[in-house]
């Protein structure tokens, strides 16, 4: 029940309910897999918003516990993927491999045109690679019915235009579509309400989506993705249209979802964000994976300079100690 305590803190006050966690929550999914740790807990509570319900609903829907329960297990995996777009002479993704693991926030970084979005499309199942395999829990992506796939992984794209003036609440509710006519349908109202809350959209719930600013629309799209309650999350530059506070909110939500056991892959432009929140970073350059590993191992000054062609300094933040990237000017 400590989840209550944690949730109460939510996004607004990370860190404040830390003590409640490890002690009072031995039976939660987190406790069971031994993911304790104070720094982790407050985040975990926050997206309880879209979050904690995910493993629960997945279990109901599939009849068996999703492998996502096992932290570190590879959920989404691309192996030696090569993509040559129609009409292009050269492949834009070459022999790329990536494993997105349960409980990890995996950042995809690289310069413009490095193939991030294409690799993202491959992971989302939108692009069928010309060579290589993509699989979810060991099953090839193409072999999974779209509806069953939609109950396991949610995708946030950069493009979030909505054609008609649906209200924000209606748009978020669309995220519940995969759960129609399943027992998890009972959770719809609660999941939508939580997603609206965690994305700071409650005051806008009744507004028409087409009348909102780009940043508000982006948050509505994120809320929709959270309401989908999947434990594999793919986010394509989720911070792009947002102000500083909401950027941090989104990163916190993504990280918290990972802490709850979700496998989260995020395309990021902001290297500092990648250094600050990612558990693992894959650096792409000209369609190839240059390096993959912990953020501080991958995002070194020399690697960044080599890939981006811009000299940088990487130094520890004076307060937090997290590495910070600063272009040399």
């Amino acid at each position: 029940m400590s989840a209550t305590a944690l949730g109460a803190v939510g996004l607004s006050a990370p860190g404040s309910a830390v003590t409640a966690n490890g002690a009072a929550d031995p039976e939660s999914a987190l406790g069971a897999v031994g993911l304790s740790g104070t720094a982790i807990a407050p985040g975990a509570a926050a997206p309880g918003a879209g979050g904690l319900s995910a493993p629960g609903s997945a279990v109901t829907a599939n009849g068996a516990a999703a492998p996502g329960a096992v932290l570190g297990a590879v959920r989404l995996s691309a192996r030696e993927v090569t993509v040559t777009p129609n009409g292009a002479a050269d492949p834009v993704v070459i022999d790329a491999a990536i494993d997105v693991r349960a409980g990890e926030l995996h950042a995809l970084v690289g310069p413009n045109g490095a193939g991030k979005s294409t690799l993202f499309g491959v992971l989302a199942g939108d692009i069928t690679p010309d060579a290589g395999d993509v699989s979810l829990d060991g099953t090839p992506l193409r072999g999974i019915h779209p509806l069953l796939l939609a109950r396991q992984r949610a995708v946030l794209l950069q493009q979030n235009a909505v054609s008609f003036p649906f209200t924000v609440e209606q748009v978020v509710r669309m995220g519940r579509a995969p759960w129609a006519r399943t027992p998890a349908e009972d959770d719809d109202d609660a999941a939508v309400a939580r997603a609206l809350q965690v994305t700071d959209l409650v005051p806008l719930a009744g507004r028409g989506i087409t009348s909102l600013s780009g940043g508000e629309r982006a948050r509505a799209a994120l809320a929709r993705v959270l309401a989908q309650a999947c434990d594999v999350l793919l986010l394509d530059e989720p911070t792009a249209a947002l102000d500083l506070k909401h950027q941090e909110d989104v990163l916190r939500i993504a990280r918290a979802r990972a802490r709850e056991g979700a496998a989260v892959a995020v395309v990021l432009h902001d290297l500092n964000a990648a250094l600050g929140v990612a558990d693992r970073v894959t650096l792409l350059s000209r369609g190839r994976v240059v390096a993959s590993g912990t953020p501080s191992d991958v995002l070194t000054a020399s690697a960044i300079e080599a890939v981006y062609g811009q000299p940088v300094d990487v130094f520890p933040h004076p307060v937090s100690g997290t590495p910070v990237v600063m272009p040399r000017r």
């Binding site: 209550t4 949730g7 069971a32 918003a49 319900s53 309400a193």
Partner: peptide, 13 residues
Amino acid sequence: GSAGTATAGSAGS
């Protein structure tokens, strides 16, 4: 928000 979280958490456990 906390109540919602607790619902889900309990389901998980």
